[in-house]
Every structure is written in C-alpha cells, then in structure tokens.
Design a protein around this nucleic acid. Structure first.
Lengths: 194, 194
DNA sequence: GTACCGTTGTATCGGATCGATATATCGCAC
DNA sequence: GTGCGATATATCGATCCGATACAACGGTAC
C-alpha cells in the first residue's frame, strides 16, 4: 500500500509528487510501479485525512480558479509534508505486525521501513511472511506433482520457474530471520525451533 | 490479460466460471490471482463480444427475471464454450508477437499457451521479454550502485533480492531461447548472434 | 537568441482488477 | 437432521494502472 510509502518518505523529508514517485520506484526496487493515476488521488485522500499538508501554497491557491476551460493554468510545485497526525499514523503503521503486513501488496513497503521497526515486529512479520510463502510453495509443489506428465513442456516450465521463485524467497526470508535472531540472541522469548 | 486465459482454457474444453478460476490459478502458478470480481465481468464482456456463449441455458434464462429484490434466485451452473469468433480471436492472439506480449501483465498467460504458438513468434516474444527484463536489471544495478552505502541494511537487502530475481529471469529466458534455437537450428534466418 | 527536446511537474479519465461480501446448492460426516 | 466445507454465481466499492494532456524549465545545436 502506497499510503505507508508516502508517509515513510515524507517522514524523511518534505517532497513534491514527482520526486515522491521516483523515490518509491527506487525504494521498492521496481517491484511495484506507482503511477500518477494512483499517486495524486492518494495525496488528495491523505490531505483530506489530515495526514499531510501542503507547504508554501503560493501557487496552489491559484489552482482551480473556477474557470479556465480544461483546468489548465500556471501550476507551481506542490510540496507535501507530514502533519503531526501523519507522523502519528506512520508510527502506528510501523507497529502493526498482523497478516496485512506480510501479504504480497504490503510486505515490500513494510520491509522497506524495517530499519525504523521494532525487532519483535520485524520477526513476527518475517515469520508470517515465510509461512505465507511456504503455503504457496507447497500448493505449487502439489499442483506440479499432480499435473506433471499431463501438460506440455511450457506449462511445466512456467510452473517450475514459479516454484523456484517462491523457494528462493523462503530461503531469503530464512536467512533474514536467522540474522535477526543472531543479532538479538534469545533474551526473553525462549521459543526458537531450530 | 485474462481474456486470453479464458479463451485458451475454453479452447481446450467448455467450462463454468468456478472451474475456470481454479484452472487459471493452476496454470499461472499462482502468479496472478484472478478474483471473481474480474472473472464474471470479463465473461459478460466476452459474451457480449460474441467470443463465448452459454451452453444449456436452462437455468440461465431464469437469470434476471426483472424482479427478485436483491437479485437472488435459483441459479444453476453456467457452462461457457467458445464460439467460432472466439476460436478465431484466440488464434489471432496466438500470432501476436509485439511488445504487449512480453510486458509483465501478459507474458505469463502468453507463455502458458506457447505449445500452441509458432516457433518464430515464440522466439520473438522470448527475446523481447529478455530485453525488457535486462533493461530493468540494468536500471536496478545502476540504482543499487548509486545508493549503496547511503541506505540502511534492509533497503539494500530488498533491492539486492529484487536484482537477483530479475537476474534469474534473464538466465531462465536465455536457456529457453537457447533451447528453442537448438530445436530448430537456423534453417531460414541466418541471424544468430552467439 | 531561438528553436528544439528531454526532464520536471501536476493532473484527470477510463478501464481493469481486487477484496469483501451475499446467496444458494451439494455432499458428507457425525 | 444438522452442520460444515466445497462448489457456484454475482455484485459492490475502492484501488491502481496506462495513457494522455498541459506546462514550465534547462540545455544545446545552429
């Protein structure tokens, strides 16, 4: 979800939309795209929610002067910044460690701000994510075992490639989990299988 | 695009929506989801287009009898089958080898029906796809080289993981391309670099 | 200096898709 | 017989993308 991405980036520094987009693209490593068609409506929503505000609205006050046929006119940069509520909201998001945090759409953004996330929450999310991806892997394995020999080479190849991808992600997550546990070697919770 | 997925699966056998969904999920290896919210509107669109039709509309004729408050009522299975135009449309899609065929959204589905695709078209799509993914890889590499040492461990880890993913896909595509060329060792077009 | 072009920048529109939800039937276990 | 999970159709609101339009700025080729 790009709400958190916007909040997180604006938390580092005020920014205008265009730069926000480039930063998100770089941050997520090209995973998710973030088009203008979602960015600007999102900014509007968040402004209405009171999480962000517009700095130096010199030119912005000119926006929508109730005339100008196709809504054009001299438009200046619109720099957004977090409000107090916005900072609060971001901190709140950082503490969430439920299933939403490890689903496909949000995990990337969630992970991108791990440096500002508590260790316990980090571990919960990583382990939840790993369970989730393992489920998918097992489903793919079963499906592949069932349909093998019954489908053409390309279908097989596609499913095999997909399986290897999720397999790789599981290993990646396991390494991350290990490294988290090494950095903080079981002080309180004694439950560490393996 | 699920238009092609539906056409391709119905080309194998008539089917109802629920099974169509399961088959697409298995076919794409869990890459793309295909929810009911997109499946049923798509089926409606395609029926209006004349590509698919409903077999045995015994119960279907009861659908929407202009009353029944919340639109419920005894509904039976709705089995869809390809029309002549539908088969034609599918064959037409199979011959397309332009950029649409190797963009993220469509490549998976396109590839799933490679067995029914001409060798030349297969090669064009695979090479187009590889160029596309190589571009992304190079972009990520540059971005990673630029921001290295300036970002935290997790951002770096995320970008690194993403880079390895696209790198893997490039290698996968290269193997596929090679194997295509071995199977059909340069009969006509003499242009084979490497 | 001016004509051109790529980048920066804001914004909307239509369409595709998702997630949640509602409803109903069927088979099977207990 | 009662409950439950799988089968099955369908819609709703919200989100997001891709394409597109518009405009100002910066460089550079001539």
């Amino acid at each position: 979800m790009l709400e958190m991405a916007i909040l997180g980036l604006l938390n580092e520094a005020p920014m205008h939309g265009y730069e926000l987009r480039k930063r998100v693209l770089a941050l997520l490593g090209g995973f998710r795209a973030l088009s203008y068609g979602s960015l600007y409506p999102a900014l509007r929503r968040m402004r209405e929610q009171g999480w962000i505000c517009v700095q130096d609205p010199a030119d912005v006050s000119r926006a929508l002067p109730a005339d100008a046929p196709p809504l054009t006119g001299k438009r200046g940069k619109v720099v957004y910044a977090l409000t107090a509520e916005g900072k609060e909201r971001f901190q709140e998001l950082l503490t969430e460690g439920g299933p939403e945090a490890w689903e496909d759409e949000r995990f990337g953004v969630r992970f991108a701000f791990f440096a500002q996330t508590d260790v316990d929450v980090r571990l919960r999310i990583l382990e939840g994510r790993r369970r989730r991806v393992e489920e998918r892997r097992d489903g793919l394995r079963a499906s592949l075992a069932r349909t093998r020999e019954r489908v053409d080479r390309y279908t097989l190849e596609l499913q095999h490639h997909g399986l290897e991808s999720v397999d790789r992600e599981v290993r990646w997550l396991s390494e991350l989990i290990n490294s988290e546990k090494v950095d903080r070697p079981a002080i309180d919770r004694g439950s560490d299988e393996s």
